[in-house]
Amino acid sequence: MSYMPKSPWLVHYDASSCNGCDIEVLACLTPLYDVERFGILNIGNPKHADIFVVTGSVNEQNKSVIKNIYDQMPNPKVVVAVGACASSGGVFRECYNVQGGVDNVIPVDVYVPGCAARPEAIIDGVVQALGVLEGKYKNMVKVAK
């Protein structure tokens, strides 16, 4: 399974983020940071993705959307929560329509700090997620044997 870290594909969903983290996720793909040179692709189809990048906190309306995208992704899969809101609810944690971080709905593997998270931090989070992905795959193979 050594090929997976060489071209991880990610799907990005904006839960209820302020856009700050989202445009930083997009900035990672554009010429200054250009993660596509490492084979990292941002795609729209959850069924093609290995890494789920979520920005923003969870509310009643988008709970099912997050769950739906996560369930459609094939195993092994990793979830990266980008930014303070996705990790804990951040500055909005006391709002009436915010239920806290993404880990309330789906299991999160890597938390990226920052408000807004910097592109360097997001790339670092995705790279750490690759290690988790590799570990999960090895585990799956062990169980299958």
Binding site: S16, N62, F92, C95, N97, V98
Partner: peptide, 22 residues
């Protein structure tokens, strides 16, 4: 409603100087 947070209501919990960061 996918991004609704309800931050206008936070004025009751944050004073007018802190509110600018929200």
């Amino acid at each position: 409603g996918f991004v609704h947070r309800g931050l206008e209501k936070l004025v009751e919990k944050r004073d007018f100087n802190e509110m600018i960061y929200v």
